[in-house]
Every structure is written in C-alpha cells, then in structure tokens.
Design a protein around this nucleic acid. Structure first.
Lengths: 188, 188
DNA sequence: ACGTTAAAGCAAAAGGTTTGCGTTAACGGA
DNA sequence: TCCGTTAACGCAAACCTTTTGCTTTAACGT
C-alpha cells in the first residue's frame, strides 16, 4: 500500500550537493560573504538558482550547511596518556581552529541558522569530550557530570570570546580552565 | 579652512531612526523575522526604503541595531549586601532575560552582525560586572582578574547554552558557577 | 526493462535592492 | 533672524534576486 516515499539520497542529488558545497567554499575563499549570491553559486556549480532555492531555502542555509561540514571532527581526539593531557591538547587545538577567520565565520554561520544546526555543532564537541573522559572512567554518571563541566568551563569561554570579539584565551589559560573543570566535577 | 564635516545628529535623523526602530520592533512582534523586509519597515515608518538602505546597509544591520538597544542595561545591578549575592542575583536575571525568545533573537542578531556590535554587547555585560565587583574592592588589578573569571565561568556558559540550543542552566547551578568563578579569582 | 516520483531545468512574473538626481532641513556664520 | 552650506531624505528607473508553474530528467523499486 504505502511505497514509503522516503528521501532519495541517490547519485544526482549527492553530486549536486557536493558541487554546491565546493562552489560555495571556493567563492568564500575569494570574495567577502556579503558579495556572494545564490545565482553566483549556481553558475559556478553549473546548475540553476532555483535548485538551490528549493533545496536550501536561502543562502544562509547554504552557508550553514558548508559551515557544519567544516565543524565536523575529522578524527577522534588524540591520546596523550592522561585524561587531563587529552583534554588540554584537544581544547588548545579546538581554540586554534575556531579562532581562525574560517573557524569564526563557520561558527557565526551555524549560530545564525535555525536551532538544529547549532545543536548539531555542540554535539560534535560534546562527543569528542565524552570520548576523552570515557577513556579514563568507562561509562557511569560521573562521566556525564565531568563532560558538562568541561563544556561550561572550557568550551563555553573559548566560544564566547570568539563570537563576541574579545581577546582570545592564551594557551596556558586553557590549561587552567581544564583543571578548574576537573576540580569542579570531582567535588560534585 | 576645514568646517569640520562631523556627523549631524539633529532632529530629523533622530526622528527617522526612532521610527525605524519602533516599526522594526512592532513587526518583530507580529511576524517571523524571515518574513520581514526593508520595504515593509519603511512603509510602516512612513519613509522610503532607500533611506534605510543608505543608512543601515541591509536588514541585518537594522535588526542588530534594534537588538543592541534591547541588550543595553537599563539600570545598574541591584545591591543585595554582598558581592557574591549581587553576582548571583545579576546572573540569574541575565539568564532569564537572555533565555527568553526575544533575548535569544537579539543575541543572534548581534552575533551575526560585524565585530563591533558583539563587542559592544559583551562590554555592557562586563561593565555591569565591574560595577558589582568594584563595590567590594574599589579599583585595583584584582578587580580586573575577578571580572575576567566571572565572564569566563558565568557569562560564557549562560550564553553558549542559549546560542547552541542546549538545555539552559538551572538557577541553582548559576550560584555554583559564581562560587567557582570567585574561588578561581582568589587563587590567582 | 519499466513505471513511478522526487528532484532539476527552464522561463516568466514578482519583489527587493541599487543608484542618479532633485529636494529638504540641520547647522554655522553674518 | 536670515542666509549659505551640505548631509540626509524622497523619488523613480534600472538592475538583480527570488519565487513559481510547468516540463523534463534520472533514481529507485518491482
């Protein structure tokens, strides 16, 4: 009776999505974001503008879509031998990536799009932290508590300062923040 | 020789700015932000669209301009008898205001506009905190340190969770964050 | 292979944005 | 108080983006 009209992730759709992403990234490297239009992206990708409007809605959704790919972790956090060491290394690298012009722009593009993209982005981050903390203490509610503290005391200040254009954190301050987060988690 | 061509904050400009702000706030209450256009605002304000384009550039700048007025503190932080109490009361109120749909939208509008607006917004916040901390220990570098810690450990988690659509902080967790910020500041 | 249908192409209509030029109204000096 | 100067506004036409109805293409299941 119902042929299950689910999505169709087939070849053509995927090809067009990749073309749009590639053209958007390319234009983003060349021009200022305010000077990029949907017809420009379409022309570069070799498709018609209406395809973009129908699939993405508006140009901000395209930017957000590209941004979230940039924000997706490409590898599990590397191991240094201790949870603290892993967290410090991960946080310093995260700070580095997000402070760069590309990282800042990606963060803004994600934040300005509807609720689900920011949540997805925060979840990428949380998952990485869970991996690290989970190595030291496999499973249990204390892991969850520690993760929350790392998000509040380490990730939040990093991102807040970037989004609001304050001076970025120093690398050694990141270390202190990690210690404070772990301290706070232990005391609960 | 040079008649100093400075800005002209006179009556007409101010009147038009107010009209645009008022119409924007009104439309923002009625419709979804994506459905609001520059010609709509202009019509409601009784001016021509080109005036808005020339003064603000685009509609996002208008939204950001309105948002920053919403974010500007309307009174100095109220006093409870202790620095800790003042900070807790202020932070809980701040959380409340920023979590509301209007507050969230204003935050996003500010963040998505160029660098100076976010910085202005963060400075509003910092100034309020400085006022509170300065009451306990008038002037000195330790005040500055404490303010930094409150921003990193209290403000940042509040705002991060709002912007990335995580569960908002509980009111009693705010209290714990203030304590942690003050602890961290003392240890430096 | 064939039928079905989601997604893309095309083109015209609708609407938003930019721009040149004339007009208005603050501001400063006589 | 009046007058000259000039930033800012109004108007309207040109330009570009966005939307929309219809046709065509190409995945996917049978």
């Amino acid at each position: 009776m119902s042929p299950a009209p689910g999505p169709r992730p087939g070849g053509r759709s995927a090809r067009i999505q990749q073309a749009v992403h590639a053209s958007t990234r390319k234009l983003l490297d060349e021009r200022d974001r305010a000077d990029i239009t949907v017809p420009m992206i379409a022309a570069d990708a070799g498709i018609t503008p209406s395809t973009i409007y129908r699939r993405w809605g508006d140009i901000n959704e395209v930017f957000a879509d590209v941004a979230i790919e940039r924000l997706r972790p490409d590898a599990p956090p590397r191991e240094t031998g201790s949870v603290r060491g892993d967290l410090v290394a991960w946080a310093q690298e995260y700070l580095e990536e997000m402070s760069s012009p590309v990282g800042r722009a990606a963060l803004r593009d994600v934040v300005m799009s509807g609720d689900t993209n920011p949540l997805k982005c925060a979840t990428f981050c949380r998952t990485q932290i869970e991996t690290i903390v989970g190595r030291g203490e496999p499973l249990g509610t204390s892991v969850h508590v520690a993760v929350e503290h790392v998000i509040d005391h380490v990730v939040a200040p990093i991102i807040y300062r970037i989004l609001f254009d304050l001076d970025p954190l120093e690398a050694d301050r990141v270390e202190a923040l990690v210690d404070q987060a772990l301290d706070a988690a232990v005391r609960v």
